[in-house]
Design a binder for these strands. Structure first.
Lengths: 108, 108
DNA sequence: TGACGTAGTATTAAAAAACATACTAATGCT
DNA sequence: AGCATTAGTATGTTTTTTAATACTACGTCA
């Protein structure tokens, strides 16, 4: 929670939700994780354009907001798998609606 | 359209939609305009924290993306009213879902 | 022994977003 | 004449976000 309740005005819930999923890459990360668990390197390949540094940071933030689960395997070379938590899963409908809106209204 | 179609990979529609509504204040602006037409000064009062400069900029971008209509009345002191276009209206469901998600999952 | 693969970290630089503050134009009102 | 009102613009600064590049650790395999 980034805002305390008592200073929350009407638009707050919208604002707060956007703070969580509104990063440049977060929506896309979540979208990919909707269909599968992926390793770090796989996600990177799916999002050409994002740097390793930024991907790490976004994933950590999503993990911090409890939307994404980070599972580390004690192997060499290292293996780390990312999946949605239950809370992340609860965003499915919203993410899919945004995808559909983009398709329809932006011709993508 | 910020992206050309042929370089669009799978997550693109989500990304593009978020680019349009994902600004710090845009979701909130749209949310308020869902219920009414408002003047510049009214919007400002509803969003304590945003500066005049930023509000102007966000509104211009929303106008540029054809989500918001800006109607100027030739009066003094000036009067400018902002309302949703049809395209902006088409985001209603998404915005409301984000509001609901925030209420439920962020306790707002 | 030394290169390979994976998931990072560290550091610095650049770009984008937001903020703070002051200023303007036009008219009506006193 | 001078002040109030509204929706801005202008300018400069700070903060946040993203990018670029180089580096690390560790076991495996040749």
């Amino acid at each position: 929670m980034r805002h305390s309740t008592y200073e929350c005005n009407k638009g707050c819930p919208v604002e707060a939700t956007l703070e969580i999923i509104g990063g440049k890459w977060k929506g896309v990360i979540l979208y990919h994780l909707l269909e599968n668990t992926y390793r770090f390197g796989e996600l990177r390949k799916m999002m050409p354009g994002i740097t390793q540094h930024t991907l790490t940071k976004q994933l950590r933030e999503l993990e911090g907001d409890n939307l994404v689960l980070r599972k580390i395997y004690a192997e060499v070379p290292p293996r780390v798998e990312y999946s949605l938590t239950e809370r992340g899963e609860s965003l499915r409908e919203i993410i899919l609606m945004m995808r559909d809106w983009g398709r329809v209204h932006l011709g993508l």
